[in-house]
Each structure stands twice: as structure tokens, then as C-alpha cells.
Write a protein that binds this DNA or RNA. Structure first.
Lengths: 137, 137
DNA sequence: CAACGTCGTTTACCCATGTAATCATGAGCC
DNA sequence: GGCTCATGATTACATGGGTAAACGACGTTG
């Protein structure tokens, strides 16, 4: 495997599909990039109990999938996300919405409401959001 | 494997974890139950392109996981859900919420809003829901 | 210049899952 | 009562993912 992936995939961009573990690695790169493998490992210590080797594997799989770019920096690489967090969020949440709530948002919120999973803050924020929406458009 | 699972699992109930394919089978049982394997197969024809054998496997795995109960009815079994749909919905949606939106609902809705994924109907329903909420509690 | 350390690359391994064919068993039919 | 059919049980097999060790290349240092 090698950096060729970066280029090939950047063109054909096949709706990159990230696993759960992989997404954890992406998170630290979305927070800040570029980062060296070492920095990624450091950032993950604490959140995940992974060996360095495991993280290296995930970085490589992400490279292979075209979710990351790696640019050489002397002897090491600097990794940056290619897949955007917002795009990933969309794929994830729409897939769940489609599978569980027939693709509609209101029933999802209603579910959380039934389960009393709405904090006062949530309610306040939602209220504001919705008000902004229905006169905005 | 056998029906013993039904009983064992009913007691220890280890937060049953269902795969995607399995959840499709559960859906037809949530809609109506009990149902025989044959009825499940019939209900799935159309939605999924699965061989009967595949569905039998899924039924058995669900039994093994304690997500289903099977009661003998002559030569066949009648399957019913043990895992409740609402509980499953909760696990799925809370897990997504936690992973992607820091456990808070408003940012999730905000995301859909940014992506223009809110229909007029959604907005109306949300508005009503929220209004009902903040004086209700 | 040989040993070492540092990175990235390759290989490994096990479990869950999707998908299904095959086996076994018991009940009804000829 | 042996044969067949229906139905559940067992076995199969490839893929993906989580987790990680082993390997290899290359620059550094004594």
C-alpha cells in the first residue's frame, strides 16, 4: 500500500465508508490537522485504550479508503482528513433516520421526548431553532 | 442451539444487540406477532431479496441472542419479539446521538436544518411538539 | 560502519455478519 | 411402515472490522 491511494481515490471518491473505530481516529484529525501519527496517538491516549500499532492500522485503512491524505514531512507523514466531518455526519444520521424513523425528523425528536431525553437546554435551543426556521422559510 | 436460550436469556437479558439484517426480521414481528417462520418469510418477500434459508438463520440468531421468543405450535413455532422496538430505537438513536452530537438533540436537529432536510411538515410537527413541551414541563 | 531507533507497511487472527446450503426429525400419506 | 414433505437445526463460507505483532527501510549515533 502507499500514497497512490490518496490520489486515485481523490478522483473517484466512492462515498467513503468509515467504520466506528476509524471514525474515532478521524475525529482527532477533524479537530485539528494536519497531524503526525505520533500526535494522533497522543490525542487518542485517554479516550481509547488502543496500542500504537492499532492506531497505525486504522490510519492506514483510512488512507486506503481515501478518507485521509498523507503528505510527507521529512521522514514522517502529516495526515489530514479528506472526508469531511459534515458529510460523514450526514451519511450517518440520514441512514439512521431512514432506517428507524421513516426518514422524518419530527418522529425522531418525538422519540427522545417520550424517553425524556430532552434537557431544558435542548428544548430552549430547539424552540429557538424552529422559530428561526418557519419565518425564515 | 435450542429453545433453552429463550429462558436463559430472558433472565439475564444482556442488552440484546441486533445486527442490521436481524432488525429487518424484527420489524415484521414488531408489526404483528406471533408469527410462524413461514409468515415472516412471506412478510419479507418484497422488502428483501432473501432466501428462506437466510431468514431461518436470522430467526435462529435472534433466538440465540434472546431477542425473540419461540413457542411451539404443533410442528412449528410461533415467534414473538422479546426485545421491544422502543428499547431498540432508544439504543440506536442514543448511541448515534452520543457518538455524533455529544448526546444533545438540538445539534442533531440543527444539522438536519443546515442540510435542508427539514420538510415543512417536519417543521410544523416540531413546532407543535416543542410548544407542547415547554409549558407541559 | 555497524547497531539502533523510528516510522510506516505487511501480515495475522478472531469474531460478527450476511448469505445460504445441507442435515435431521417428525408427521402425514400411499 | 417406508417415503416424502415441511420445518427447524447445523454447518459453511466469504467479508469486514477490531486489535495487534512482526517486518522493513532509513536516518542517526557511537
Amino acid at each position: 500500500m502507499s500514497l497512490d491511494y490518496t490520489c486515485k481515490r481523490e478522483r473517484m471518491r466512492p462515498a467513503v465508508d468509515i467504520s466506528d473505530a476509524e471514525s474515532v481516529v478521524m475525529e482527532v484529525l477533524w479537530e485539528r490537522h494536519p497531524r503526525t501519527a505520533e500526535e494522533v496517538v497522543a490525542a487518542l491516549a485517554g479516550r481509547q485504550d488502543w496500542q500504537e500499532a492499532t492506531i497505525k492500522t486504522l490510519l492506514n485503512r483510512l488512507l486506503g479508503k481515501g478518507a485521509l491524505r498523507a503528505e510527507r514531512d521529512g521522514r514522517r507523514y502529516l495526515y489530514s482528513p479528506l472526508l469531511e466531518r459534515e458529510a460523514w455526519l450526514s451519511r450517518q444520521s440520514e441512514s439512521l433516520l431512514a432506517r428507524l424513523f421513516d426518514g422524518r425528523v419530527a418522529p425522531l425528536v418525538a422519540h427522545f421526548s417520550r424517553q425524556r431525553k430532552l434537557s431544558a437546554q435542548d428544548i430552549a435551543e430547539l424552540k429557538q431553532l424552529i422559530e428561526g426556521l418557519d419565518d425564515g422559510q
